[in-house]
Simulated assay, not measured.
Amino acid sequence: MRFSHLGAEPRIHPDAVVASTAVISGDVVIGAGCQVLHGAVLTSEGSRIVLGENTIVMENALIRASATHPVHIGAHTLVGPMASVAGADVGDEVFLATGTRIFNGAEIGDRSEVRINAVVHLRTVLPPETVVPIGWVAVGDPLRLLSPDRHDEIWAAQKELDFPGYVFGLDRETPDLMVQLTERYGRSLSRHASDRAVD
């Protein structure tokens, strides 16, 4: 289904194919030859999502732009089943495997591979042709690739990147962090109450 959100409607190239069970909401531009499969969700929460030509978004993938972080996915890129891309810039000919997670402000260079269940953390820059191994975490700029058993190093790098501050504008040390986060984010998401189906 397609939805108008915040006054913007999806723009889908006539050569693109979007499954009837996919959800395309708001300022979303889908290029020529793209395929968006069943259960995929592309939702613009205040800035644009752009899919370059011949990009494939597979089943149950989530692509989300926020008010401060648009999404651009280049041409001939594959977003695997159950992958998630939030507010990131993904280059051309990139492979994002099943279950990958790409966070706000990340930049994925052309012809990179993020393999099954790997994570590219916020504000992380992958140079072109980088491979993030299965289940590993990519973090920072300059890039560090860390295996999942190196939790302390991952957390140290992740803490410096300040997820709650960067994404939600809240200090991690706020005593009622989750109360403020859910109330603020909930107000933002409540704008969907006035969405309307356009197909």
Rank of each mutant, 00 (worst) to 15 (best):
S4N: 14
A8T: 12
I12A: 13
V18D: 02
A22K: 07
A22I: 02
V23M: 13
A32K: 11
L37K: 12
L37E: 11
G39A: 00
A40T: 07
V41R: 12
E45G: 14
S47Q: 14
L51F: 14
G52P: 14
T55A: 01
M58H: 01
M58Q: 12
E59S: 02
A61S: 09
L62P: 07
S66C: 07
S66D: 13
H69V: 04
P70E: 15
H72M: 12
H72R: 14
G74S: 02
A75Q: 13
L78D: 06
V79G: 04
D89Y: 01
D92M: 12
L96Y: 14
T98C: 01
T98N: 13
G105F: 10
G109P: 00
R111G: 00
S112C: 03
V114I: 15
H121E: 00
L122A: 06
L122T: 05
L122M: 04
T124K: 06
V125S: 00
L126Y: 06
V131N: 11
V132F: 07
G135E: 11
G135Y: 10
V137D: 07
A138P: 09
A138C: 04
V139T: 08
G140W: 01
P142T: 00
L145R: 03
L146G: 08
L146F: 10
D149W: 02
D152V: 06
E153H: 00
A156W: 05
K159P: 03
E160M: 00
E160C: 02
D162N: 13
Y166M: 09
D171P: 06
T174E: 11
P175H: 08
M178V: 15
V179R: 15
T182Q: 07
E183F: 14
R184M: 06
Y185K: 04
S190N: 10
R196W: 05
D199L: 03
